[in-house]
Design a protein around this nucleic acid. Structure first.
Lengths: 337, 337
DNA sequence: CTGAAAGCGCTAACAT
DNA sequence: ATGTTAGCGCTTTCAG
């Protein structure tokens, strides 16, 4: 069954391979008669032009490499979905690789794919890469002519297309919303204080407080780093004891779940005494009790946008470098009043 | 920057391309002197053999195609992780595609990749495919010499390697466990009654009842099909009213969350009055309140096994067709006594 | 020890 | 309207 080739078809009809090639590509040079018989035969025998031969000839693989820190976080799975969908619609395949938050793995993946396997990258940095601030692997691949589109966790110094969440305004708007709905003591619980997106959310929180005229109180910022989600609750219970809190913004779902549980254990009713709102997009939020009010991140849209921008660039539909900001939405559920 | 080729290196040293090729492959035919200078140069200039040229020559791409119904379910994301990890370790890339539970999409993906893009497939059928029982696309690709490994949702009539969860014993053991811990009225809530894995779980449930000497009562089986998870609760509340239930086994997390909420609303304490145990593996289970006892499915291990089997087959390390059964584990948390 | 040449499957410029 | 040829980047006989 070793795949039908153009050569086989040529032999079948006693014509040259170039006649077959042209016939299959519907060239005006070939007579209708030969074209139709060759095309018919090809269809019947399920002929498919060999991918590697084409890629070799065209110097283009119609495939994009995706590097993401994990597929187990709903957000990244959503982005992946958006990329895959858009890519397929435009005739591209995706090679998906997981960096597992490791710098080394990220480098290895880029090495592995930088041999003509892919036409361009869509990626979100590993935590380790962001902490090390070691971006040479990105710089080099761009210099070597392979475009990169970064999303969510992007490297500021690298000159490439970027898709980011509007973290700053997401947090800011949430503070304003909480203020309008009668909250005065709003805490900020972050598990991402070492990442740029964590900083942006904190800045938005501060600016939000300023906008509504609430004082910023350092004590109401809780940074939880390198802890398992199981420990979150134990950290927050004393926090509630020491501070009179009526609103909490968290940078993620797990922290929000913990914030709610700790609140309940501290005798706070949700949302009567305490509102909890999380940066999040999905699964846990909708199933927690009470259901969580979220600053929703539109992962799928992010993926679609990233794919569109990369493919447009590959197909020379644009050349300038852009940064797209994806707005967040506040989705009110039951954990806030 | 257009990628360094063997030809460029040949020119650099005024030797032929075949000398370079041999030198890079450390052939005994080439003198140490030339070898080392060529290898040095190649390394310094970051030479990488062109992927498509190699694939064309070797008739092997070292990449595997993955087709899964969705990436948004934790189980599938876990399997993907296992596949990707194992593949990478063994020098393979993965092209990941989402069928979105659609038969047509599945066929299109297979078509698209059956042109020498991949050496083999790892897949889990779409629901639509399973319902239609339309497996010709699988049959044909196997006949065309492209091996397939199926996992979780497998097509019985198709003769290929398979990795399945031990759904039957998972359910059976759970019933026995519930019985031993004092439960007498055990319900089975399924959202998968139209799928083979749903049947297996039901059969295991029945056999479990038989083993411990409890009667099977049709009324205690609740089939929920084509409903949004938001409706589950409303279905279960009357069910609890009409039937005296002290244990529930569900086929998934969402149903378990609903079963717990409905229980609480019906005045049942968990786990004192009601135990809820779900087929599941992760995220929701650990964050629900109370935390969910689960029949855990080991998605990652499933992925690793699938990748190993496919790659072994591709590399002719085995030829026979196997079916691997992955055991489940009962992970006791707070929703059962 | 090194090189020439064929071939993997395909396209396209250039004959005929 | 059809065929010949070169070439994409690489490996591998076969010759020297």
């Amino acid at each position: 069954m070793g795949k039908l080739t153009i050569k086989d078809i040529a032999k079948e009809f006693n014509v040259s391979i170039s006649t077959v090639s042209k016939a299959l590509n519907d060239s005006y040079e070939i007579s209708e008669a030969t074209k139709s018989k060759i095309q018919k035969y090809a269809k019947e025998h399920n002929y498919k032009p060999n991918f590697n031969a084409l890629s070799l000839k065209n110097r283009s693989t119609k495939t994009i490499g995706i590097i993401i820190p994990t597929m187990l976080k709903y957000f990244f799975a959503q982005v992946f979905k958006g990329i895959e969908k858009t890519a397929l619609e435009r005739g591209y395949k995706v090679i998906a690789c997981i960096s597992n938050e490791s710098y080394t793995k990220e480098v290895e993946i880029i090495e592995m794919l930088s041999n003509g396997s892919i036409d361009g990258f869509i990626l979100s940095m590993s935590k380790e890469t962001e902490l090390k601030k070691e971006f040479n692997h990105f710089k080099e691949t761009i210099e070597n002519g392979t475009p990169i589109v970064m999303f969510d966790r992007v490297a500021a110094p690298i000159d490439c297309d970027k898709i980011i969440t509007d973290d700053f305004n997401g947090a800011l708007n949430t503070v304003e919303h909480l203020y309008k709905t009668g909250h005065k003591n709003i805490a900020f619980v972050s598990t991402l204080s070492n990442l740029h997106i964590g900083e942006q959310r904190l800045l938005g929180y501060k600016k939000g407080l300023e906008n509504v005229g609430l004082p910023f109180n350092e004590k109401l910022v809780v940074n939880i780093l390198d802890k398992d989600y199981k420990e979150y609750e134990a950290i927050l219970i004393p926090f509630y004891k020491e501070n009179k809190i009526d609103g909490v913004i968290t940078t993620g779902e797990s922290a929000a779940v913990a914030a709610m549980k700790a609140g309940l254990k501290s005798g706070l009713e949700i949302p009567k005494d305490l509102s909890v709102i999380a940066f999040s997009n999905g699964i846990l939020a909708r199933h927690s009790s009470p259901k969580m009010t979220t600053i929703s991140q539109h992962g799928e849209q992010m993926g679609e946008t990233a794919a569109k921008i990369l493919i447009d660039k590959l197909e020379k539909k644009h050349t300038e470098i852009v940064t797209k900001v994806i707005k967040t939405d506040l989705v009110i559920r039951d954990s806030s009043r």
